[in-house]
Amino acid sequence: MNLHRFANPARFLRIARVVAPVAGWIAFAALLAGAAFGLVLSPPDYQQSETVRIMYVHVPSAWLALQTYVAMAIAAAVALVWKHPLADLFVKAAAPVGAGFTLLCLVSGSFWGRPTWGAWWVWDARLTSMLVLFFLYVGYIALSGAFDDEERGRRAGTVLVLTGIVDVPIVKFSVEWWNTLHQPASVFRLGGPTIAAEMLWPLGLMVVGFTAFFVWIVCVRLETELLTRKLRARLENSPG
């Protein structure tokens, strides 16, 4: 596949102007329907009662938080190896969104953990690696904004994102090790019944909604970046 097919900013803008509104409306409709199903129409779980409704924001945000990082890492590799001109812009456009998903995942998980496990926070593998992921997102945002030369910031960021993707599985793995030695009986396993169809609906809708939201916002942020760049080039070229 020719990667540079989408490299032309003008072509990307044409595609984005079609994709963005479609994704945006899908996100809006799916999130609205997901909220209706998740908060009203779906029954409470027979073990977890109403707290299960937190799952409908927690699970999609966790999923998207990881997906976003993987997508950023792939784009960072593309930016480093093939010097694709939109790839590092994508990384920069996606980072705050990923950070938002991760924060939402952590906090909603905390609100779920308190009534079900009796603790706001436990140091198990998932929580710890998610927290590290959040720091990686924040680190990327801070690093990419720390240079007078924006391009240097983005390029430094791609190296950080790629280093981080090695770290995330190791962190998860290491905490699992650490926990199996010190807390043999895991009280924290959710191990509820296999998910019922009434719960699958809102969950699926929310996942679709979150994903469409991600596509929409990345398109919008990329368009903004490209327009700003165009404007800057124009101002630099115009005399006086």
Binding site: F147, D148, A156, T163, L181
Partner: peptide
């Protein structure tokens, strides 16, 4: 990464400490 960055020292801690987590856990473990 932070060569030439503004507030390089603080930034360095933010970038590096999360990457040190596995070493910390295995070593202390």
């Amino acid at each position: 990464l932070v060569v030439g960055a503004r507030r390089g020292g603080v930034l360095l801690a933010l970038l590096v400490l999360p990457l040190y987590v596995p070493v910390l856990i295995f070593a202390a473990g």
